[in-house]
Design a protein around this nucleic acid. Structure first.
Lengths: 233, 233
DNA sequence: GCAAAGTGTGAGCACTGCTCTCGTTGTGGA
DNA sequence: TCCACAACGAGAGCAGTGCTCACACTTTGC
């Protein structure tokens, strides 16, 4: 009975098996995609009976949800870490975008889990919203750096914000604790959708007939959008 | 034995049943999503035995592929028709973008089929590429209209195209038979990825914490991107 | 008129998610 | 130290799936 020092044997075993299941699930995910993920196959591979899995995950969808959350955190870590490596806002922006794409290329099925179509009757709305929000936060942070240096100068004025949009965006700014003007936040969200639109198109094969391989196009867009949001060269 | 005038009774029956199957499939698709599409359930609903379906579609994936192609054509029709309703390039651009979003909102599961994660070990690459290319073609066409009037003036210069990208984009221009400069085509592709990135984010629930409901944001982005590609007001 | 092709039937295989019961085993309190 | 209890794994079983096959029956084209 370890009072504070650690977990009981059973708890350790549980934690270990839980992550073993998830690891095996990730393997199957990479091989057969989200649709081909089978609890029975995982159990078989782990040398246990299928019903035992249900001691750890109440249902297949719960396993999927756990994988989604893990994937979000993993992607968030990758992007955050890439951002931290640079101080100059534009370099930071570049690094974040590139890191997102590279993570996606290395974890195709997990990316599809997060940004593809919601697989079941989509199970996981709330638990995944916080970890999924990390990437746009990092992008906003790059903008904030430039803004504080007085160097955030959008490439062109652009249309004025409607009242509803302005209110929404100001709520976002408040929630994320940023002091960027509504206009800049809006541009950042636009760039965010562009970034993941581009990555999704590349991964899901929508660009095959046109700009494929897509790295040159991707790099160009990252620069274009950096100009668009107003990051100094 | 109708020599030229029409199809034989069997052929008519076949065509009819084929589309009945697809219709029932679309119903199930809208209700349970792509993962929940069941051949047996379709057969049951149509009052036939499940194995009979295989006379019409060799496999579940083939049915899915047929649905994807139908969805692409449907979306393409909607966007093209919306485009045709306007002569002024910017209005045309607006109409196309809005039509794409509205179609997506009205056909969520079918949209997910086309632009979501490739469901199986993705089955359908070649047959779907032509119909899927129609939307970007319509967008390019709006640009072409402005270009011919000498009114296509991008909002800012933007980064220069790398050699590889330039070559790729010129190949796209040639393949689509447009005389737009490489720079304009690149901007159009960027806008295309932004458009569908935004729609996907809205449909797949990525915008819930931020700009939701998304119409104001969508409209703003459409205008922003119209400025970006250089469409005159 | 008749062989051939097309079509619906029903049984069956291998697989899935999930539930339930039944022994076993580790846990924490008395 | 013992013991009740919770957690756990095993195995059978249910309902559902995609898909195949041999079998009848009907339409087609020569």
């Amino acid at each position: 009975m370890p009072p504070s020092r650690s977990l009981t044997a059973r708890e350790r075993a549980r934690a270990e098996l839980t992550s073993e299941i998830k690891a095996q699930a990730r393997i199957q995910l990479a091989e057969h995609g989200a649709g081909g993920l089978s609890l029975r196959a995982i159990a078989r591979e782990l040398g246990m009976v299928s019903s035992a899995i249900y001691r750890y995950f109440p249902s297949r969808d719960d396993l999927l949800t756990a994988l989604i959350i893990d994937a979000c955190t993993d992607l968030g870590d990758a992007v955050e870490q890439a951002g931290k490596a640079h101080r100059k806002p534009r370099l930071r922006w570049r690094a974040c975008c590139t890191a997102a794409r590279e993570w996606a290329l290395e974890h195709r099925q997990e990316y599809a889990l997060i940004y593809g179509s919601p697989v079941p009757g989509y199970a996981a709305p709330q638990d995944t919203v916080a970890p999924a929000a990390r990437v746009p936060l990092v992008l906003l942070d790059a903008l904030r750096g430039a803004h504080h240096d007085g160097q955030l100068t959008p490439a062109f004025a652009g249309p004025a914000l409607s009242l509803t949009l302005k209110a929404q965006v100001e709520a976002v700014a408040e929630a994320t604790g940023t002091d960027l003007p509504a206009d800049a936040v809006t541009r950042a969200i636009l760039a965010w959708t562009q970034l993941f639109g581009m990555i999704s198109f590349e991964l899901f094969g929508q660009l095959v007939g046109s700009v494929d391989p897509s790295k040159p196009f991707f790099d160009h867009c990252v620069e274009s959008m950096a100009d668009f949001v107003g990051l100094p060269a």
